[in-house]
Computed example of a mutant assay.
Amino acid sequence: MQDRAVATRHTILAAAAEVIIERGYGGASISLITAQAGVAAGAVYFHFRSKEGIAHALLDLDLLEGLPPCRGPVLQQWIDLALLLACRLDADPKVRAAPYLAALADSQDGWTSPWLTWRATVARPLYAAAHEGELQTHVQPTPSPSC
């Protein structure tokens, strides 16, 4: 994809996330998204088939985007991931909108909740840290059943 197309797609996703955060998924419309993004409806439909397609793109969020390569103890990767997510939740509307949309996934036909994948991504460094002996013996990385 050309740089301009990538930038337009990013702009549309950020605008859609802002509209969804402000109005909810049901209150978001392609016309509101195009107005927020400052693009024509044709640009939105070039990248996405529908509002649902935009939601799926937001749900496919890469939690590891921007994570620096792990240096030092494996547990440091988990700490880095937690700090990255906290910063991205504060600064990136796409990251803020994704958990909201994930919570809707169970009630939407054809949507797959990313919670299990996200939880596995966050837990992976903890399992590696346990394997490397970086966790105290009483610390178990296995999530509780309520998670």
Rank of each mutant, 00 (worst) to 15 (best):
G27I: 06
W115E: 06
L32F: 05
G24T: 11
H138Q: 04
L84C: 03
S31L: 02
H47K: 07
I54G: 04
W111S: 07
G110D: 14
W111F: 14
A41L: 01
L81Q: 10
L85T: 08
R119S: 05
S146E: 14
A120S: 12
L135Y: 10
A103H: 03
D60V: 01
G110W: 12
C87L: 10
A35N: 09
C70R: 07
G53M: 03
D106M: 01
E65L: 15
R124L: 08
T34S: 15
H56K: 10
A7T: 08
I20H: 00
S31N: 06
I20D: 00
R124G: 02
G53R: 02
S50Y: 02
L89I: 14
A57N: 11
P93C: 02
A55M: 05
Q108I: 13
L61M: 13
D60K: 04
L81W: 01
R49G: 13
G66W: 13
Q2T: 09
Q77G: 00
F48N: 00
Q77C: 09
T117V: 08
A91E: 14
L75A: 12
H138Y: 08
G26Q: 07
A37V: 14
A128K: 11
D3K: 10
E65Q: 14
A86F: 03
Q136T: 07
L83G: 00
P114Y: 08
A16N: 01
P68T: 14
A86D: 15
L83E: 13
P114T: 04
L135S: 06
T34L: 06
A102N: 11
Q2R: 09
I12P: 00
D80H: 02
T112H: 07
L85I: 11
H47N: 13
H131S: 08
E52V: 05
L58V: 06
T137I: 07
H138E: 07
T121S: 01
A28Y: 02
I30Q: 04
G72Y: 11
A120D: 15
M1K: 10
A35C: 02
Q77E: 15
A7L: 11
V39K: 03
V122C: 14
A130W: 01
E132R: 15
D62Q: 09
L85Y: 06
R71V: 12
A41I: 05
G66R: 11
V39D: 06
L75Q: 08
A91S: 15
P143G: 03
A120R: 13
L67N: 02
D80S: 11
G24W: 10
A17W: 02
K51C: 05
